[in-house]
Computed example of a mutant assay.
Amino acid sequence: MTQPCSLTVIIPTYNRSSYVRECLVALRASGVPDLEIIVSDDGSTDDTREVVAATNPDAKYLWQPNSGTPATARNAAFAVSRGRFVGFLDCDDEWLPDAPARAVRHLDAHPEVDALFAESKMGDPQEGYVSWIESAGQEAFFRLPHVEPEPGFRVLERGPFFRRMAVRNPVFIGATIVRREAFAAIGGFDPQLCGAADWELWLRMAHRFTWAYMAEPLAKYMRHLDNMSSNHDKMIAEFVQSLRNVLTKCPLSSFDRRFIRTQLRAHLFSHAYLAYDRGDIAEARTRFRRSVRAGDIHPVTLALAAFCQLPGALARRVRRLKHTAAPGGRA
């Protein structure tokens, strides 16, 4: 039988060998003596394999044909991992010195917690770094019901955290460590998703399991132009699918089902409006129909759906009203 270790970190990558090298070097200061490192390569054609072998010969290297999403690479690495706890670190991000070890100690001390996420530093070396949680969590996160068994360690009440997660994701994947049993029980990442695969997984886990927040920064989130989250249209499409998954996969209460459907309608409208705003009326027509079928009968939605059926002068006249029909003005 394979001997377990304290913590596994799974690093998905695709043709980013220079990032992989920096990520592996930073992990030397994790503070976890038996850290298992798995680099899960989604079909790279560069020198990633050689870089891993040269930088950390003890790291496991997995290669698979390109799937187009890190979700499959993460799931494949989990299947061969040994850690009691598992973290997921994109190769262009870094763990901070000794913070992973402190996260493991928190989880060992609090068996009621199934998943832990932490503060992170977001930015880049040129522009500097800001707080992740102040941007992604906002004030609403800090008002969530919780208990604080240790200073800087909050155990969050499940229902309010799930609903806050559905509104805005406060969890950075690179600063998240989960119990092996919880990840296995929830079924891993959805391989049909790419940039929103983590949010969809966190939603399912937040509905079923208990989360905690560690105020000490665990990771650096590097912002650059090729971050997957930079493709706004694709991300909103994945947000829509994620919420549909939650409605299908989670045994929601009637209150939570209504709440998730409300969030779904908001994302469907935003997705439709993006197509409308860039002048792709045919695509907007299809998307607004979906929004209305999902129960969005807001006057702005109905007006834009009607507009997308009409060409010519009338279309140009209605488009002049688009600024009053922006997503932020529907309340």
Rank of each mutant, 00 (worst) to 15 (best):
T72F: 15
V104C: 13
E94A: 09
P125A: 11
V32W: 05
R105V: 08
R84D: 14
D93P: 01
W95C: 02
M1R: 12
P149H: 13
T69I: 10
A136D: 05
E200D: 14
T8Q: 06
R180G: 04
R179H: 07
D280M: 09
C91A: 15
R164L: 14
F172Y: 11
S67K: 10
P327C: 08
E283S: 14
R244K: 12
I186C: 13
S253P: 06
P12T: 08
E112W: 05
T13P: 02
K322C: 03
P170E: 03
V240E: 00
T72K: 06
D90S: 14
I236Q: 02
P145T: 10
I260Y: 04
F117M: 03
A284D: 01
R257V: 03
A54K: 15
E150F: 07
R278P: 11
T324S: 10
W202V: 09
A197D: 10
T69Q: 05
A76R: 06
V80G: 09
H271I: 06
S81F: 13
R179Q: 14
R105N: 08
F269R: 14
G187R: 13
F183T: 02
R244C: 06
C5W: 03
A219D: 01
L264S: 13
I236Y: 00
H146Y: 09
G329E: 11
R244I: 04
D90C: 11
E94C: 05
D98K: 07
T262K: 15
P125M: 14
A206H: 07
A101R: 02
Q3N: 11
S230I: 09
T324E: 12
T55M: 07
D58I: 00
R289M: 10
K322Y: 01
A315L: 11
A282M: 05
E157T: 11
L7A: 08
A29K: 06
W199C: 02
V155R: 04
E181W: 04
Q3V: 15
R105Q: 12
R16K: 07
I297H: 12
T45D: 14
P100F: 01
M205H: 10
P97G: 07
C194F: 09
D226Q: 09
K249D: 15
V318W: 11
V147H: 15
A166E: 01
V167L: 07
A53I: 02
D46W: 12
I297Y: 11
D42N: 15
F307E: 10
E119C: 00
Q241A: 11
K60Q: 12
R208T: 14
E22L: 03
R285D: 08
V39R: 03
K322G: 02
